[in-house]
Design a binder for these strands. Structure first.
Lengths: 183, 183
DNA sequence: AAAATTACTTACTTGTAGGTAAGTAAGCAA
DNA sequence: TTGCTTACTTACCTACAAGTAAGTAATTTT
């Protein structure tokens, strides 16, 4: 079944978000899925390949969301973007950027490139959203839209990190404050 | 020499900030210091003990800084706080919170508590700084000082993460934008 | 019906991780 | 001077990590 491959990616995604790329092993995947570790190597010759597959899936998910979100006004778009993080915070997961950027120096070059690609993708979208929203007077903020996007993405990323350490209410406090500032 | 113990902590600190707690090994310490791994175990029976020593050192450093910073007006205090992160960004290091919170679920309970302690410490200080600064009209912002502190700390934390992935200029863009918002 | 491909498993290798028991040289203390 | 402590080293252990070679049952293609 092609099903196995998807279940491996799905679980690897979870493990990267909860434990980090360097802190999970093939056993963490093979045990719950009741397969041998060689089955993982069959689909993903190296752990790097598995990591790349997880990042690619995330990039694709974002691309799909972008298309869907484009039908809404920018203030709603941002709320929908925040909601993705909200769902994660409820599960106690962090985002891929939040998980992979601390390990950045230990990642193989191929994964580093993908992480870069992913972050540029997100930044580009938030920048455009803020920029266009400001033109329509849906957002109010000073300074460059890209710089503002950096702050917004940064806050989403670390809200998930802080929520795990300091309690889940932290996420809502941060996102409410952020939206109040922009709207 | 007591020197060895301090050099182990110093290097462990660097390794946690660059590679992450789960991604460095005793060899990464024993090789450069030209000692055997048992020498590390002599000072720190387990890796957990070493991790705790690194966090304790950071908590102490913050306590010392707090005392020194207290002699300045709040807007200067915040700039000095930001400067700590700026120095790190130049070295390509991230902060302890940024390194340890993604790995939080994999950390031994004793380290989790220390990480919590450390983050509460930082949050408390930034909250008071913002609160007092606003009273003196040195800062201008809406909403609860604690919620604002969450955003500020969050931005400092992830500016270091993003700077490594997207380039060092990211740190300055973010901190300038942040200061412009508050002052 | 034969050959090839798919989706794995069995059984293994090599490397490295954290950790430990026992020893030792140097210094200090009684 | 004997004994205790400090600051390590040598030599080792067990566990587990990623990865691989070879086999196999089931399906698909020719």
């Amino acid at each position: 079944m092609q099903d196995t491959k998807e279940r491996i990616i799905e679980l690897a995604d979870r493990l990267i978000r909860t434990r980090g790329f360097n802190a999970f092993s093939y056993k963490d995947i093979s045990d719950p899925l009741e397969i041998r570790n060689a089955a993982i190597h069959y689909y993903f010759p190296s752990k790097t390949d598995l990591g790349i597959a997880v990042i690619n899936q995330e990039i694709e998910k974002l691309a799909i969301n972008k298309l869907y979100w484009a039908t809404f006004p920018e203030n709603e778009q941002l709320r929908l973007f925040f909601d993705v993080f909200y769902q994660r915070s409820k599960q106690g997961f962090i985002c891929l950027m939040g998980s992979l950027s601390p390990d950045y120096e230990t990642l193989p070059a191929a994964m580093q490139e993908k992480v870069q690609h992913m972050s540029e993708d997100v930044l580009e979208w938030v920048t455009l959203c803020l920029e266009n929203g400001r033109k329509k007077q849906l957002f109010h903020f000073k300074g460059d839209a890209y710089d503002r996007a950096l702050l917004v993405v940064s806050n989403m990323l670390s809200s998930l990190l802080l929520a795990r350490v300091m309690g889940k209410e932290v996420f809502e406090k941060m996102s409410n404050q952020l939206l109040n500032d922009l709207l």
